[in-house]
Design a protein around this nucleic acid. Structure first.
Lengths: 142, 142
DNA sequence: TTTTAAAGTTAGTCAAGGCTAAATTGATTT
DNA sequence: AAATCAATTTAGCCTTGACTAACTTTAAAA
């Protein structure tokens, strides 16, 4: 017993699902730092009203999330002022933007409609390993 | 104003994120019905101890989830007995198994290591639109 | 300068999805 | 038949991420 894994890889999937739960826990953080970065680039600053509008949630929800991001060291904010990325937040945002770009370009390169690619990339990007990302990059370059 | 979307598709992403939240709400349900189907196929019945082991969560968590699935009409269960899929659950399980297969085969077909493909497919499958799934299928067949 | 509108905050609620600890049930052994 | 062990259930707790409603602050207009 115990070598069930070797025999049938569909057993012992606990690790896969643990990773999945981790990925999920990071999703909101990643989407927020990415969006904050975009807003700063496009509009010069990130206001919570803009975040609420772009994510389609209420201002109260944005407030909660920003507090969490601040607690976790991704952003700084002062009451009634705009939101800034920390070094850590900046780094993550950059990584996410890059990953998003790769996934989106890959999907388009295999023939998916750009609008659908935009939808799907937003969901897929959080679940793509480094290895898979490299392959996506290579395929898209072809 | 209003045609912001046409000019820059990165604005007005609220819909994308709404869809993403919907997809997330369905993930656990999909993983459970798929796993319950697997267990019935492999072991003749789905016991919560097996679900707990495969997902890497506690029995209490499985119990909560099964209650939710029952409430939503995907499974039936009686205290201290095994879990059964309803018609609705069966249908969803079949769809999910098929989609998983397509995503996995696609990833392998573009050169991703089978073990990594298994990891990534588990995350990606819930975020692939019908359109993208068709393209994946076509690419994998090539 | 006062008023008002927009933006941001706070408080309280809810469901999902985790957990631990304790109680119960069912099945197996002695 | 009783004891024991594994499986299941229950109760209670936590965090995330959503909401509404009410309040405060800031900025803009009158």
């Amino acid at each position: 017993m115990g070598d069930d894994t070797a025999v049938n890889p569909r057993h012992n999937k606990a690790e896969v699902f643990a990773r999945l739960r981790d990925a999920h826990a990071r999703e909101v953080t990643e989407d927020y730092v990415e969006m904050i970065g975009d807003l700063i680039a496009e509009e010069g600053e990130a206001r919570s009203v803009a975040l609420a509008e772009r994510f389609g949630v209420t201002a109260a929800t944005v407030n909660n999330t920003i507090k969490r991001l601040e607690r976790d060291g991704f952003v700084t904010s002062r009451p009634y002022r705009s939101i800034f990325l920390t070094e850590k937040g900046e780094t993550l945002a950059k990584k996410c933007r890059e990953r998003h770009r790769i996934v989106y370009n890959f999907l388009v390169s295999i023939g998916i409609d750009p609008e659908i690619a935009e939808f799907d990339a937003e969901g897929i990007e959080h679940h793509v390993s480094e290895e898979t990302l490299r392959v996506f990059e290579k395929v898209a370059k072809t």
